Amino acid sequence: MKAIPYGRQSIEKEDLEAVISTLKADFLTQGPKVKEFEEKFADYVNSKFAVAVSNATAGLHISVLALGLQPGDRVITTPITFAASANCVRYGGGEVWFADIDPTTYLLSLESTRRLIESKPKGFFKGIIPVDFAGLPVNLEGFRELANEHNLWLIEDACHAPGGYFVDSQNKKQKCGNGNFADIGIFSFHPVKHIACGEGGMVTTNNEKLYKKLLSLRTHGITKENMSENHGGWFYEMQELGFNYRLTDIQSALGITQLAKNSAGVERRNEIARKYKEAFKGKIKYQSLPSNCYNAHHLFIVEVENRLKLYNYLREHKIYAQIHYIPVHTLPYYKKIGYQGADLNNSEKYYEHCISLPMYPTLTDEEQDFVIKSINNFTV
């Protein structure tokens, strides 16, 4: 059996042809493919606007700035996420506060978040960044109600979840990142994610004012909007301090072909998840699926005893499982600024046992059978 990673990209003929075609075109950076990708992505998630960026971390950064984050502002997120979900607040000089996860879904707990908010004076917090962890959609309807009660903004970190959705209280399907509940949604195009651009990200919103602010911050704070008859085509103004967070036409061309395959890819991911669940039901704990959700399954995570031994055992058999994630509040940087005393028991218990199994659309039945057999042999 060849090596089996926990995740991997799938680059096919149409992807290669799209990139080659763009390499032969007039634009390699900010050309027509970027706009085409943005429009197709917005249509895919049912949002009004989309802004392509160099990576999801850049997207998170400009999102908190667009929402008005100021030094000292306090923002709540989950400790079970990649560090970027918290780091973006630190980039803007804000303080990160962590609420605990639900021990069955592994998502930021609405109840824990509410308790944290209500333990402080009104206005103490400015925003919340819940994460669609492993591809499972957060209950954004509930978080929106909570945010509205306390005048907070809401960013949905949907990096794991393009194609995922939940059904709201009005029985309407709400796609991850559609902007109906969160002010802004964030997606990642890292190679192990659903849509691979090498690197890249997308920011979605239904708010035109936020959209224009995001466009400005993505490109150095520069605009040509105020050009008059007294100016030539060279004219531009830098209105604010922005960044070079642009995606290229090359990456966008790849993103367009990858996006076209995502619905089929998510369907295959769910087939793989069902097979894992059938194999482990009653024996090994895995992420629960609320009845009103469709999991995009970036990851398939189980909780086991002797996690380190299983991790090493699988590697010996060329199965390269991974751990997602070390709780952010336990990382040295966050410990230094005072997070080691946080009461996040569910997150810490989860981390002691979690392991991510191979999950990607091109995982074959034979490979998955081998993974399942290896785990069962270890646990017997």
Rank of each mutant, 00 (worst) to 15 (best):
A3L: 03
L23N: 10
V34S: 04
D43N: 14
N46G: 10
N46I: 04
F49A: 12
A56K: 10
L60W: 07
L65Q: 15
R74F: 08
T78P: 05
I80V: 13
V89W: 08
G94V: 04
E95W: 00
R114D: 02
P121R: 11
G127E: 12
D132A: 15
A134H: 13
E149K: 15
W153L: 08
E156Q: 15
D157T: 01
A158T: 11
C159G: 12
Y165F: 15
F166P: 09
V167P: 11
N171Q: 13
K172I: 14
K175D: 06
N180Q: 11
A182Q: 14
V192L: 06
C197P: 02
G201I: 08
N207W: 04
E229M: 08
H231G: 02
G233A: 05
F235T: 01
M238T: 15
L254D: 04
E267C: 06
Y294H: 15
Y294V: 12
A296Q: 10
L299C: 07
L310N: 02
Y311G: 00
N312P: 00
Y313H: 14
R315V: 00
K318M: 01
I319N: 02
Y320A: 06
Q322W: 07
I326K: 09
N345A: 05
E348T: 08
K349W: 03
Y360M: 03
L363A: 08
E367G: 08
D369Y: 01
K373F: 07
T379I: 09
